[in-house]
Amino acid sequence: MPTATLTSKGQVTIPKKIRDKLGLKPGDKLNFEVEDNRTISLKKKKSIDEAFGMLKRENQEALTIEEMNEGVAEYFKKKYGVK
């Protein structure tokens, strides 16, 4: 199991084996979660770019932001009479 040492400034270098396994690169944002006051989970924060196409279904073309905004506006107009 890879280990790391906490510096006096509270910094830790993530071992290369772990960085490689998680696909971490310089500049990546990381989320830390403390579990049961003893365990720390480290997760790579996903960027909005990674979410692109996430909700796409087979045989369905991706919508543009403008098309999504029009769809939302149409929904609110029908449901609430909002223009």
Results as ranks from 00 to 15, higher is better:
residue 78 K to D: 12
residue 52 F to H: 06
residue 27 G to C: 06
residue 29 K to Q: 01
residue 42 L to D: 05
residue 48 I to K: 03
residue 18 I to H: 02
residue 8 S to Q: 11
residue 34 V to M: 03
residue 59 N to Y: 12
residue 1 M to F: 08
residue 59 N to D: 15
residue 42 L to T: 02
residue 74 E to Q: 12
residue 10 G to V: 08
residue 31 N to A: 10
residue 9 K to Q: 13
residue 67 E to R: 04
residue 36 D to Q: 06
residue 34 V to W: 09
residue 38 R to D: 05
residue 31 N to S: 08
residue 7 T to Y: 04
residue 55 L to E: 11
residue 16 K to A: 15
residue 27 G to T: 06
residue 7 T to Q: 07
residue 3 T to Q: 01
residue 82 V to M: 12
residue 55 L to T: 15
residue 58 E to F: 05
residue 23 G to D: 08
residue 71 G to K: 15
residue 16 K to R: 14
residue 68 M to R: 13
residue 75 Y to E: 07
residue 60 Q to I: 10
residue 35 E to T: 02
residue 75 Y to G: 02
residue 14 I to L: 04
residue 6 L to W: 11
residue 13 T to Y: 03
residue 6 L to Q: 08
residue 9 K to Y: 11
residue 53 G to H: 05
residue 53 G to S: 08
residue 57 R to E: 14
residue 13 T to E: 13
residue 11 Q to V: 02
residue 13 T to S: 14
residue 78 K to I: 09
residue 62 A to H: 00
residue 77 K to I: 09
residue 48 I to T: 10
residue 4 A to I: 02
residue 25 K to D: 03
residue 2 P to V: 07
residue 29 K to W: 01
residue 2 P to N: 06
residue 34 V to K: 01
residue 21 K to R: 13
residue 45 K to R: 14
residue 14 I to R: 05
residue 70 E to P: 06
residue 36 D to E: 14
residue 40 I to R: 01
residue 74 E to Y: 07
residue 74 E to I: 08
residue 12 V to P: 05
residue 40 I to A: 08
residue 70 E to Y: 00
residue 73 A to M: 08
residue 45 K to Q: 14
residue 20 D to A: 10
residue 82 V to R: 13
residue 25 K to Q: 12
residue 20 D to P: 09
residue 34 V to E: 10
residue 80 Y to C: 03
residue 6 L to N: 09
residue 47 S to P: 01
residue 40 I to E: 00
residue 16 K to T: 14
residue 44 K to F: 04
residue 67 E to W: 10
residue 12 V to Q: 11
residue 56 K to L: 15
residue 32 F to P: 06
residue 60 Q to C: 01
residue 54 M to K: 05
residue 67 E to P: 02
residue 62 A to P: 15
residue 27 G to H: 02
residue 65 I to F: 09
residue 53 G to N: 09
residue 12 V to F: 12
residue 18 I to T: 04
residue 33 E to K: 12
residue 3 T to P: 09
residue 6 L to H: 06
residue 12 V to T: 10
residue 20 D to Q: 12
residue 32 F to T: 08
residue 78 K to Q: 11
residue 65 I to A: 12
residue 57 R to K: 14
residue 59 N to F: 07
residue 50 E to M: 07
residue 73 A to H: 04
residue 47 S to A: 07
residue 5 T to W: 12
residue 30 L to T: 07
residue 48 I to D: 00
residue 62 A to F: 01
residue 29 K to H: 07
residue 18 I to K: 02
residue 5 T to M: 11
residue 67 E to Y: 09
residue 32 F to D: 04
residue 46 K to C: 08
residue 26 P to C: 00
residue 33 E to D: 00
residue 57 R to Y: 02
residue 47 S to C: 09
residue 74 E to A: 14
residue 67 E to A: 13
residue 72 V to M: 03
residue 54 M to C: 02
residue 69 N to K: 15
residue 40 I to W: 09
residue 10 G to S: 06
residue 64 T to S: 15
residue 6 L to Y: 01
residue 81 G to L: 12
residue 43 K to C: 07
residue 30 L to M: 03
residue 79 K to M: 13
residue 19 R to T: 06
residue 39 T to A: 03
residue 67 E to Q: 15
residue 65 I to L: 14
residue 24 L to H: 00
residue 34 V to I: 13
residue 29 K to S: 07
residue 46 K to H: 06
residue 14 I to G: 04
residue 31 N to L: 10
residue 9 K to P: 01
residue 9 K to V: 04
residue 74 E to F: 10
